[in-house]
Design a binder for these strands. Structure first.
Lengths: 118, 118
DNA sequence: TCCATATTTCAATAATAGTCGAAATATTGA
DNA sequence: TCAATATTTCGACTATTATTGAAATATGGA
């Protein structure tokens, strides 16, 4: 991933409403959530929600599939992963970095960078 | 550190110039880089660079320390770590996610989320 | 077909962010 | 003190983004 593309993804997530939508979908898992339910949960007017969903879709962070009258959205985990990989690539010259504890098991593993450790 | 404002951090990184600055500092490691060298490397005019450095500093993604006439900036790895932890917290309902290969050892470990695996 | 519901598009407006020359400030070494 | 260099602030301008009501489109069920 190049810088330009990463900046686009980060900008998409750098908005309170869009980040809330994305987090909701990340937590929802592969099953996703239909648009109207997202709007209800976050209290966003239809036009506003549509605008933000379109933005997140355009950059590839979420995907929507038509399902009868609804559109069901889910997070694109692969895109998020690439983004995180980009952010941490070649980090910190082999020093320890990213040392904080975290909630998710996998995050807890992410303690040192570039130290060749399992 | 105050409470994490993830959208603010993401918006700060969601600009090509700022992301370039941040990546440069992430790769530079704890030693950091002086402002003028950053500007030269990225081809940013002093006023523009100052604007972006101030922005990144304000949200806590980088830190500058005066060093004689220069200001030496370095990445705040802890902030980035909190941000990544936030993005991946409670992800995907125990399904496999973030499955892509990555450059950094620590990233390579980050393969499943919430599966109770080491 | 007709109605109710889901979502998008349109359009006007409001708000915010980015750019960078020039002037100001700070620091150091001569 | 003076000149050179590093960085910030100011100010004016440009560009982009966000908001949302209302109208349009799409779908499925009665």
């Amino acid at each position: 991933m190049e810088t330009l593309n990463a900046a686009e993804l980060l900008a998409a997530l750098g908005h309170e409403s869009r980040l809330s939508v994305f987090r909701l979908l990340v937590e929802a898992g592969p099953e996703g959530i239909v648009a109207s339910a997202i709007g209800e949960k976050l209290g966003l007017p239809p036009a506003t929600l549509s605008f933000h969903l379109a933005h997140l879709s355009r950059v590839g962070l979420i995907r929507g599939r038509k399902e009868s009258r609804f559109i069901r959205y889910c997070a694109e985990y692969a895109t998020m992963d690439e983004l995180i990989a980009f952010l941490t690539r070649n980090c910190c010259q082999g020093e320890a970095c990213l040392p904080k504890t975290a909630t998710c098991d996998t995050i807890a593993k992410r303690r040192k960078c570039g130290d060749g450790n399992p």
